[in-house]
């Protein structure tokens, strides 16, 4: 059952995390990531640009003592860029030892995994970028 998530820093429910996904939308389309990789959800804020990185890398922001790499999912998924002025959210996920911040339009909620929306394969996404 989808639960609405508050804006800002939030913890996601832990029970049955493997079977649940976090739903979000970009450009009206729905996507998902596995809940067990999600560390938190936050408002998007302007990151520090890092030279010499792929175009999809927006930059880095510090979150609780660790640097999070912000990835513009629109670019990763070959979607048009976000219209200026539009708010965005960041889903911070754990990837190996790293922290990645997926920049999305809006987080919709948590739902049990279903066949309709397959969770994104973050690793494959990263490989495609390098």
């Amino acid at each position: 059952m989808p639960t609405s998530t508050p804006d800002g820093d939030a913890a996601v429910p832990g029970d049955g995390a493997r079977d649940h996904v976090l739903l979000f939308t970009i450009e009206g389309r729905e996507f998902a990531v596995r809940v067990d990789t999600v560390i938190e959800i936050m408002r998007h804020r302007a990151p520090t640009r890092v030279p010499g990185t792929a175009p999809a890398v927006e930059g880095i922001i510090p979150v609780r003592g660790q640097m999070v790499t912000l990835l513009d999912l629109r670019r990763c998924l070959a979607l048009p860029p976000r219209p200026s002025g539009e708010a965005a959210q960041v889903i911070v996920v754990r990837s190996a030892d790293d922290r990645l911040g997926l920049v999305v339009d809006r987080v919709s909620g948590v739902a049990p995994r279903s066949n309709q929306v397959a969770p994104l394969d973050i690793a494959a996404l990263l490989r495609g970028m390098s």
Partner: peptide, 8 residues
């Protein structure tokens, strides 16, 4: 000084 991130 913190590492910028393993991915980068």
């Amino acid at each position: 000084v913190k590492p910028i991130g393993r991915f980068l």
